[in-house]
């Protein structure tokens, strides 16, 4: 098998960065996430392939938190669309885990299927290479297995890397894009037989089977009042969730010029569904909380055939009041659907 020595990683990143923006998991002060290798500062950052999980998910690489869509000019009554910003810069996401890879698949379903292709997303996604890191020892808040993910075989992936634990990574090209990248760095890959670590199971297990179906009859259940009671509707879960994709479209204009942009939005906020005439279909925090969990666990599955939770565990860590989606699933499982 092809093997890459970990002490050559920085050299490899430098090589790949000649053609692509390379995003690498790093610990940066108290923050961890996938940051551009161009911003890597050895005095401040630590390249950390083993973090489970990075605090920030990699979704901003293909769905930026803020993204310019097009610029315009309005002179008097005349309007002209000037430039459309579709980003085709090649990108490599290095070392994402099965949960985040699955999240990319969910984003692909949203932005590339069901009637319309989102051109901004498509352009970025087509030019993105995913190098996924197999998980042999899931972290303390990980529960991806319960959400139908095999952490040792992350999908979708162009290359799968497997950390042997002995200073080397097994390198498997898994697509044509992946083969191209492998060719670019072939001088650093050695042919070698190595032993892979034994895969450990997630410590957290959730019985998600049947939950989507059960939730169909639970929209009016009083359980939502109880579950949502501690929720502050702060939205941190939606920002850190690798699959939360909702966005707003806004405008910035000055004088005769301006641009329209989109930015992440959150279903936790009242304004998200506030209509101009005053009506709001999800006026209360409980209604918004219910919609979020139903979207994750029921609605997305009905529409796209898979849950919108990938078991990454980030919301569990970040929630200021300790709301834990695995407890919610457990409770839904226990409660009498009609009650």
């Amino acid at each position: 098998m092809k093997v890459l020595s970990k002490d050559k990683l920085e050299t490899v990143f430098n090589r790949l960065a000649q053609e692509s923006d390379v995003y690498v998991p790093m610990q940066r002060g108290e923050q961890s996430g996938f940051f551009s290798f161009l911003t890597y500062d050895a005095a401040r950052d630590e390249i950390a392939l083993d973090i489970l999980n990075t605090y920030l998910p990699p979704k901003n690489i293909i769905l930026p938190q803020t993204e310019k869509m097009y610029s315009f000019r309005q002179e008097g009554t005349k309007v002209n669309i000037e430039e459309v910003y579709e980003d085709s810069q090649p990108k490599i996401i290095f070392g994402i885990r099965g949960c985040d890879a699955k999240a990319v698949e969910c984003l692909d379903m949203v932005f590339l299927t069901r009637g319309y292709e989102d051109s901004f997303y498509k352009s970025r996604r087509e030019n993105t290479v995913i190098i996924a890191n197999a998980c042999y020892a899931p972290g303390p808040n990980c529960f991806c297995e319960s959400m139908g993910i095999d952490p040792v075989n992350p999908r979708p992936a162009d290359v799968i890397i497997r950390d042997t634990g002995n200073g080397t990574l097994v390198w498997e090209a898994a697509s044509d894009k992946g083969k191209k990248i492998s060719d670019q760095i072939s001088e650093f890959l050695e042919e070698k037989d190595v032993k892979l670590p034994e895969a450990k199971q997630c410590q957290r297990q959730v019985a998600y089977d049947g939950v989507a179906e059960k939730l169909r009859d639970m929209f009016a259940s009083p359980v939502w009042d109880k579950l949502s009671e501690p929720c502050q509707n702060c939205g941190i879960c939606t920002y850190l969730c690798p699959t939360c994709y909702c966005f707003d479209i806004q405008v910035k204009s000055w004088g005769e010029e301006g641009y329209r942009f989109r930015c992440w939005d959150s279903c936790m906020y009242r304004e998200y569904t506030q209509m101009a005439g005053g009506h709001n279909p999800r006026e209360t925090g409980t209604e918004r909380f219910r919609n979020r969990f139903l979207h994750k666990l029921e609605f997305f599955k009905e529409r796209y055939g898979t849950s919108l939770c990938t078991g990454c565990g980030r919301c569990i860590i970040a929630c200021p009041v300790g709301i834990d989606i695995t407890n919610i699933v457990d409770l839904i499982k226990e409660v009498d659907a009609g009650a």
Binding site: I249, D265, Y272, T273, Q274, L294
Partner: peptide, 18 residues
């Protein structure tokens, strides 16, 4: 009628159920 932003089923907010 619901609040809408994208019009193409992506931005999320105009859902009723799925």
């Amino acid at each position: 009628e619901m609040r809408m932003k994208c019009g193409i089923g992506k931005c999320g907010r105009c859902n009723i159920g799925s």
